[in-house]
Amino acid sequence: MNKVFPSAEAAIFDIEDGASILSGGFGLCGNPENLIRALHKKGVKDLTIISNNCGTDDYGLGILLKAGQVKKMVSSYVGENKNFEQQYLNGELEVELVPQGTLAERIRCGGAGIPAFYTPTAVGTMLAEGKEVREFDGREYLMEKGIRADFAIVNAWKGDRLGNLVYRKTARNFNPLCASAGRITIAEVEQLVDVGELDPDLIHTPGIFVNRVVQGEYYEKWIERRTVRPKPQA
């Protein structure tokens, strides 16, 4: 078995216009940069993207938004991206705002075969409108549904050709959740290692969740806000 593809372009060969795509990453941390660039280059349009946010104006998923390739975003956070906010306010982009924890759990459930769950988050807010509210032990909870998508694109630090993945530090975030919920999951790895090299006790995403693996060609690894000691405050 060999799930390795020669390039990011090759790994996304069947992502067409109108596809739904789960993408790992939080802000500019842990993004599948090479797969995003390949989608940008391919020019596929009318995408539905489920991701915590949408990069910044010029980095991460933001490049797809800027190129008008995105029809709908399902995200928890729009800030830090002028295109996102503007396209949303102008009605050019469909946006489903989902609380971050609800989004994470919806993706986890999608991948775990759980169709819906109850959460205390967002009870009594606009987001509860039209949703089932049920009381458990005297507290109200909202019903939320699991999410799956046509594809998931994720970034990992190390991976082998069977698709076993290990993430690094806070670059893990939504990546293992997305990896579980794509009908086709494509992982780009910063280091492609031999089968057997990863300690089975320390694998974050077992390879059975992953259909394709590609060695990321290069990483820009942007830092969104460089705050260091001593604080450079005016």
Binding site: G101, T102, E105, K169, T170, K221, W222, T227
Partner: peptide, 29 residues
């Protein structure tokens, strides 16, 4: 500063001894 080690605002962080990393579903759990 390490681009794989940030906070929710996108700024680099450090981790004290005994700290840990986890996925978003665990975090919100």
């Amino acid at each position: 500063s390490d681009p794989d080690r940030g906070n929710a605002g996108g700024a680099p962080i450090t981790l004290i001894a005994g700290g840990s990393y986890f996925d978003s579903a665990t975090s919100f759990g």
